[in-house]
Design a binder for these strands. Structure first.
Lengths: 239, 239
DNA sequence: CAGTGGTCTAGACCACAGT
DNA sequence: CTGTGGTCTAGACCACTGA
């Protein structure tokens, strides 16, 4: 049972993405939305806030929220959705090609990120992920063993790791994303069908459980011609 | 006169950054903060929400917010602060070296981003920006003429463009950031003291006024060894 | 069990947009 | 001027934490 503001957010978001609201259109005023959904102002404002952070609308004092011009298919960093779910909402067909599933000892960088010691074991899954058949990113995902062990009886070519782990009681409470650029190494180049040394957008993603403990640390390298990231922020709500 | 929740946010943020609250510490419960600041729950929650998006704290039901382990000096994408302000808060010395200030006709990409026609003029400022003397990013910033004209009587080596424009009545209401990776061209390589073809993190930034009209479109290329970006998101508040 | 944060209600006042 | 969103108040109920 999702909260009320979540339903409202998803409903309006759908109306914008399907074109029921065009760029520049005004949304109904908050009072009208309160009437329409039979809720008080709180949930309405929460829903609009999420839409604003995602860059779909912008707000000013004195006028209802307006819809932004449609933007290109970039991943929005504010409402971070797993790759396969995101691909579907942008109308493209995601695919997976698993390169390896292994149980190994972790390196210093991984140990630090997962807050474990260098002697500990981890489960590492390397997957090439595609959009409409073209290579889009190479994902090197590492899990702590307690979480990752359930991944050995799972075909990562078919299903979503996120869904599989959620079904096994793992809760993704929050994520941290760090973005920089790297040159493709030979493995990257081979998998992504680019030249060695070509620039890649790297996302290092750490997933946390509700207690703030990290259980996943992933190094994802994107072809910049296939996927970009975007974020919107309004000064009003921050600084 | 900034809103109450902003003061509270800045105060707690300061206490975390100066180490008064250590990683893992619990913040006071919301009721205690309400008492301390003599406000109701709304502003307290707004302040905590901003801290959470910035990645400084994490929250769970049933326990007060806790402070995250301190993170490396990366720019946080949620509370987007101008480069020079950000540099100061991380304890580094920002510097500017202006390469050119020009009034030119714009290209198709810029015309599209600024919602003007290709015949229109723009003001372009190219600046190398440094941290503690080392090249950090090359900024190619383009303004619409109405906003940019005030930049000719201004020394961009010394002051902050953001501050200068704010003083001239320009309001930065919201920003959109698009991130990808590019190979350094010869200009980038020369300015940033790297090899041609080296991977750079590119941020294309569009700034909007309160009416949602774009007035700045900037192409900023970062040395990935000097600056990275990060963002935190909690599932609770989004999806 | 008591304490806490997540969500929601019903009201209020102000600053700003557009007429 | 009226209508709107930005901010704040004072309450409420529920789900979850930890003793």
């Amino acid at each position: 049972m999702s909260p009320r503001y979540q339903e409202i957010y998803e409903s309006i978001r759908g109306q914008i993405l399907t074109g029921e609201y065009q760029a520049g259109d005004e949304l109904p005023p908050e009072t009208a939305l309160m009437e329409q959904w039979q809720v008080s102002r709180g949930p309405i404002r929460q829903a609009l806030y999420n839409l604003r952070t995602e860059g779909l609308i912008y707000t000013t004092r004195g006028r209802p929220a307006r819809v932004r011009r449609p933007h290109q298919p970039t991943q929005t960093l504010s409402s971070f959705t797993p790759f396969s779910q995101w691909a579907v909402t942008t109308g493209r067909e995601p695919g997976n090609h698993t390169l390896s599933v292994a149980r190994t000892r972790c390196s210093a960088e991984i140990a630090d990120a997962l807050q474990i010691s260098e002697d500990d074991f981890i489960v590492e899954i390397v997957r090439l992920r595609t959009l409409d058949g073209s290579p889009a990113l190479l994902e090197r995902s590492r899990f702590t063993t307690d979480v990752g062990s359930s991944l050995f009886d799972f075909d990562p070519d078919i299903g979503s790791i996120t869904d599989h782990l959620t079904d096994h009681g793992v809760q993704f409470a929050s994520m941290r994303h760090e973005l920089d650029a790297v040159a493709a190494d030979s493995v990257d180049a081979d998998a992504l069908q680019i030249d060695t040394g070509a620039p890649l957008l790297r996302e290092r993603r750490t997933s946390f459980d509700p207690q703030g403990r990290p259980f996943e640390y992933s190094d994802d390298r994107y072809r910049p011609d296939q996927v970009t990231f975007s974020i919107m922020n309004s000064m009003a709500a921050e600084k």
